[in-house]
Each structure stands twice: as C-alpha cells, then as structure tokens.
C-alpha cells in the first residue's frame, strides 16, 4: 500500500494506462500546460507530450464530439471537463452520440471513451458550479456511471473505465482531490465497474451513498455507534450499473434503509434505490426507506445556507435515529 491523494491516484491511473496503451490520450481545458485546472494531470504533458495530452479551447460540445468521433475511430480518449457543470454544454454529444451509437448501429460502432471531472458542490461556488449529475447520467442506457470516494477506488475505477469499450461517466469531487488514502501499489489494481463496497459493516440500518457523502456517512456512523445504532455503510462506487445485490443483501440483514446523496432528491439515486428495494425486498423492510439529499433548491452562496442545503453527517445521523427509534 502507498498513501496517495485522490488527485495523485487519478493521475497515476491515467499515466499507467497511457503507458500501456498508445491509443489512450487525454484532452480537455487546461489539462496540458496548466497541468489541469485542479492539477489532476500534473506531469502528464511532460511524460507523454502534446500529441497525447491536449489542451482544448473552451468549447465543450466541440471537444466532447471530437473525442467521441476519435473513439468511434478506435482511439480511447479521456475527456476532462473542468467541472461536470460545463458538460451540460456537451450533454447532447454524451447522450445522443456516445451512449446510443452502439445500440443504434446494432453493435457495429462502439464508443470507448471516458468523460471525467469534478461533480457536485465544491465550496461556495453557488448554483451553476455545484450540481450533482449522477442521476442525470444514471438515467441513460448505454452509459456507465461511476463516482468513487477513496483514492484506491478512484485509481482502480478509472483504470477500468479507460479499458471499458463503452462510454463511462467518471464523477470526481473537488473536495476529495486533496484527501489521502491507502492505495494498492500495483499497476494491476483494478476495481470492476458495477460493484459496491461495504465500507462499514453494521446490523441496524443500511446507508447507501457515494462520492464525498461516503465520508459524511462514516462520520455519522461513528456518532451513531456511541448511541447503540450500528450502521452499515455501502459505498455504491458505481451508479450505473448499480450493484443492487449488495444493497438488497444488506437490507435483508438490517431491515432498514437510508439513501444519501448530495444531489437533489427528486428523481434521484435515492429514489431509484428506494424503488428497487421496495420492489425486490419489501418484505424485509421494517420501516419506510428514507432519502437524504441536497435541499430542493439551486445551491446558495452564503456559507450558512450552503451548509444547510447539503447533507451533513448530523443530517444523516438524525435520519438513522428517526428510523431506528
């Protein structure tokens, strides 16, 4: 094991895959000379040169489309969005050109591409720079969607995403970039897409979550443990495909479920999990499923309002207390 930040883990994943496959390249705004708007691509230009680490103009629809075309032609692009908020400019290309082409062509043309970048709220950047897009992309057949929490998962999932023959939406988190975790010290470290991870076993309540909210949920579980509530935390890691088996197995044990996400709850990931568990494990539920999500408002700028709008460890703990009462 080595200790790496999420930022370093992502960089290492790209570097390793670029070393082993000449078809892999990185393009996006400020990825080369600036070393990444969030320094995720630090050192890549130096190692791989301007042919494979490509600064683009600010033109998301255009470079997403160019990446997709290059992928149809057989290359394996990694397209970085400075944030997924800007990817809305390119969402037609992602959904209509990347996600649907394999199906529409009867399997003749696939699109091996990774779209990656920070997703969700950072700190005090307000509504247009803070949205979580997990539910948006999870809605689309033909896409895979992942959202890691730890550096080990960030590295292993990014390597899996780059090797995947399909378009993969790779949702990172700006606040997590600087956090350190133990990472297996091996170029063979791969985390398969579609598998959730029970990061804290427990017996009283299942909490499903992903990305930065895994940390908040773990914090909540610590507080709950002191009160005699033993929470099981599932880091979903993959949003699509969703590892429903792991969720259901857990609910069959704990008989209670809380879903936690940073994004809006309406038609969100929690709503999807709640419906799935209701359909497949209704008899195991001792209480209604509770959803914890961001407040149903455009994210405000004021520090106190921002804190109120986003799920906190305490919000999650309160939900568990209510459910386990």
């Amino acid at each position: 094991m080595v200790e790496l930040t999420v930022r370093e883990a992502l960089r290492d994943a790209m570097a390793e895959e670029m070393r082993s496959d000449a078809d892999v390249f990185l393009m996006g705004e400020e990825v080369a000379e600036y070393q990444g708007a969030y320094k995720v691509s630090q050192g890549l230009l130096e190692e791989f040169g301007a042919r494979r680490v490509i600064d683009t103009p600010i033109t998301e629809a255009g470079f997403a489309g160019i990446g997709i075309g290059a992928a149809m032609a057989g290359l394996k692009p990694i397209v970085e969005f400075m944030t997924f908020n800007f990817a809305m400019q390119a969402i037609d290309q992602i959904v209509n050109s990347a996600a649907k082409t394999n199906y529409m062509s009867g399997g003749l043309v696939n699109v091996p591409i990774v779209f990656r970048g920070p997703n969700g709220a950072a700190s005090r950047v307000a509504a247009q720079h803070s949205q979580c897009y997990a539910a948006w992309y999870a809605h689309v057949p033909g896409l895979k969607v992942v959202a890691p929490f730890s550096a080990a998962d960030a590295k292993g999932l990014l390597k899996a995403a780059i090797r995947d023959p399909n378009p993969v939406i790779f949702l990172e988190n700006e606040i997590l970039y600087g956090q350190s975790f133990d990472v297996p010290d091996s170029a063979d470290h791969i985390v398969p897409i579609g598998s959730a991870n029970v990061v804290r076993p427990g017996s009283d309540v299942t909490i499903t979550t992903f990305s930065i909210m895994v940390g908040k949920a773990l914090e909540a579980a610590e507080a709950l443990a002191g009160e005699g509530i033993d929470a099981e935390i599932i880091d979903l890691r993959s949003i699509r495909p969703l590892d429903t088996e792991t969720i259901i197995t857990s609910v069959e044990k704990t008989n209670r479920l809380i879903t936690v996400e940073e994004g809006w709850p309406t038609a969100g990931i929690g709503a999807e999990i709640s419906a799935t568990v209701t359909e497949r494990a209704f008899d195991f539920l001792d209480a209604p499923v509770l959803r914890v999500g961001g407040s149903d408002v455009p994210l405000p700028y004021a520090a106190n309002l921002e804190t109120l709008a986003l799920p906190q460890a305490e919000t999650i703990a309160d939900a568990a207390r209510k459910l386990c009462r």
């Binding site: 629809a61 489309g65 160019i66 997709i68 075309g69 149809m72 032609a73 290359l75 290309q93 050109s97």
Partner: peptide, 17 residues
Amino acid sequence: HGIVGAQAPLGAGFGFA
C-alpha cells in the same frame, strides 16, 4: 446521425484520429 449538426465534431474526431 439524427441530431442536426452533431456529426460535425464527430467527423472532426475522425480527422483527429
């Protein structure tokens, strides 16, 4: 491709490749 104009960047992507 069914979305008007979306093939322009895609075609540029083939040129890129």
